[in-house]
């Protein structure tokens, strides 16, 4: 099963430039055309399932507007737990 991730968009910063959208390997980002930021931009949003939390969107973001999370895969999580845990 693919790793599950998601992003948080800080609407103080996002200017809807679409650089993150263009580079998203999973193609799961889009502008939220139903919504405007306080500065009047359509912010980016996750449009569908499939984000892996790879962070490439944040690498492209000129405004440091994105926080990227991902679930640590169970196997990896177990691997890092102390033995007997």
């Amino acid at each position: 099963m693919p790793v599950k991730g998601w992003i948080e968009v800080d609407e103080r910063y996002c200017k809807g430039c679409e650089l993150c959208i263009s580079e998203c390997p999973q193609n799961v980002l889009a502008l939220d055309l139903d919504h405007l930021t306080p500065k009047g931009y359509h912010p980016v949003m996750l449009k569908m399932e499939g984000c892996t939390g790879c962070g490439i969107c944040a690498i492209m973001c000129p405004e440091a507007a994105l926080t990227v999370y991902r679930e640590v895969p169970q196997k990896a999580a177990q691997a890092v737990q102390p033995s007997g845990g």
Partner: peptide, 22 residues
């Protein structure tokens, strides 16, 4: 468990930039 892959660096202030989008 959740991992933070990326967050805004502390060396950036809270001020939004005046730069054009992109």
């Amino acid at each position: 468990p959740v991992q933070v892959v990326y967050k805004r660096p502390a060396s950036l202030s809270d001020t939004p930039t005046h730069y054009c989008p992109g």
